[in-house]
Amino acid sequence: MAEQNMVQALNTALHEMFEGDARILLMGEDVGKNGGVFRVSEGLFDKFGGQRVIDTPLAESGIIGTAIGLAVGGMRPIAEVQFMGFLYPGLDQLFSHAGRLRARSVGQVSVPLLVRMPYGGGIRAPEQHADSAEAYLTHTPGLKVVVPSTPYDAKGLLYSAIEDPDPVIFLEPIRMYRLGRMEVPEGRFTVPIGQARVAKTGSDLTLICWGAMTHLAMTVAEDFQKRGIEIEVLDLRTLAPLDRQAIASSVAKTGRCVILHEAPRTGGLAGEITALIMEVAFWYLKAPVARVTGFDVPYPAYAWEDFYMPNPERLSRVITETLKD
């Protein structure tokens, strides 16, 4: 088994999938000759040609809308959006069509569409290249939303996503693309959509996170462990549909919960997860559910990025608060 970072794991998965299923296409801006701006599609164009690895005109609505048609028409398109901050011209296609066609056609039309995009901050990117807009998508009925935080999960979730009969939005945390390597099996394997992962077990507090925030969560949890406090880190991996069972059983066990995300606070997914905890684990709570998030400001130019991003100090402070009796 080879050690791979997330870009390599995704790239290998794409190569394998293209070999295995001639209906699979990749389409987007700079995905062909250039191999994608993060090189996730490196080598695909040379191997599978421009009919399957398609450099499209610069238009997100066109990319996603055309991919919807291709999916309905029997192909298996993977649409790439260059950065999540540039998804917005294509949102109408997700909101009004991808998420609704099955329901509107009373089950007669399936949209087996996969939309991939890098998202999130932490790499000093130019303005508007660091958005975490997952809440718009999880709020949209009909869409599934997944976020790997490790190379293994990236590959396994990509296989699940391409095989799913419904539209799946696949968010790739930019900061995790090349941060850390791990063994990733060759060939097909799946990580089921809808299943969270206990990244670290613990009994004192549940720390819920996804994407690049999992990295921060693990660092802080290990720090607390040195002081004898056992934090359970729950990496959600799928944001829609949420793994109610995993959240319920972890919070029931620990009685305390902190939710961590880099998206702005108001209307962020932490609010939804908190409500879910009220429904499934309220009577087990020993302290109010707390959240550590980005602020309610547009993601700032990178000179302010360190202020914006949740960091070990902010997270530790809120965890310590929540651990108080």
């Binding site: 610069l58 011209p89 303005e127």
Partner: peptide, 23 residues
């Protein structure tokens, strides 16, 4: 370019440079 939002000057009739294409 240093990541500080100052591509403008208050008295100049210009909007901040658009990052999203064509919008």
């Amino acid at each position: 370019a240093m990541g500080r939002a100052a591509s403008l000057a208050g008295d100049v009739r210009a909007l901040p440079s658009s990052i999203p294409i064509a919008t």
